[in-house]
Nucleic acid binder design. Structure first.
Lengths: 107, 107
DNA sequence: TGTACGTATGATAAGTTGTTCATACATTTG
DNA sequence: CAAATGTATGAACAACTTATCATACGTACA
């Protein structure tokens, strides 16, 4: 899981540490449901769990697991408003990452 | 693993199918060693397994598994030259994906 | 206060990925 | 053709991720 540190590897633009962080973010995003969540929140500023659940047709508990994981890892943020919890995109860069790949003609 | 298809979900910029493909590529890239491989091949055009193994200080067999996975998934390509096999980057878009995230100030 | 609604959490099952090791295959060279 | 070198492969296991279920928590409102 971690890259063995070698003197040579360090000299490569990205530090070992940064590669690990990038991998971490990629991993956190690498799932169809989570990509859909990002897409939704790229267009909407913020949405409640129920709204997301309905739009994506994903069961509440499973969605909640995805959302809290993404929050934990800094991709989303959330605030409560009464009974609802609204999620929104914190790390907006992931939109670009997805757009970049989505733009590939061969996909 | 797959996103349940709902009429609403379909109307979101990226099709379900495309989200799955994007997720697939992200997953294939989401590992420190594989990010390092991409970084190396972004700078070098092509490198043999031994060269990569030495630069990254990763054991031959493990590296081979990573490389053939990435090849299978269309990210790398390879050609034999004598005893050596040279790998190079086929899907160059992944460079941008990594660069994009690597550029995040907060990482 | 109790009931309903929205959301989170924890356990567990199921599936996938990463690692290691031993071994096999391909190519070159003696 | 045997030995050496470079690379791939497959099995076995460990580590992680995803999905599901039951249940708990927080808030509003009768």
């Amino acid at each position: 899981m971690t890259l063995p540190v070698s003197p040579v590897a360090v000299d490569m633009g990205l530090s070992i540490e940064k590669m690990e962080k990038v991998a971490f973010i990629l991993k956190t995003t690498a799932h169809p449901t989570r990509i859909a969540i990002v897409q939704l929140l790229a267009a909407q500023e913020s949405l409640s769990v129920t709204e997301i659940s309905e739009k994506l047709n994903v069961e509440q508990s499973l969605l909640s697991h995805h959302l809290s994981g993404m929050k934990l890892k800094g991709i989303l943020s959330s605030t409560r408003e009464g009974k609802n919890i609204f999620y929104s995109l914190k790390m907006r860069e992931v939109i670009d990452v997805i757009q970049c790949l989505a733009g590939c003609t061969f996909l």
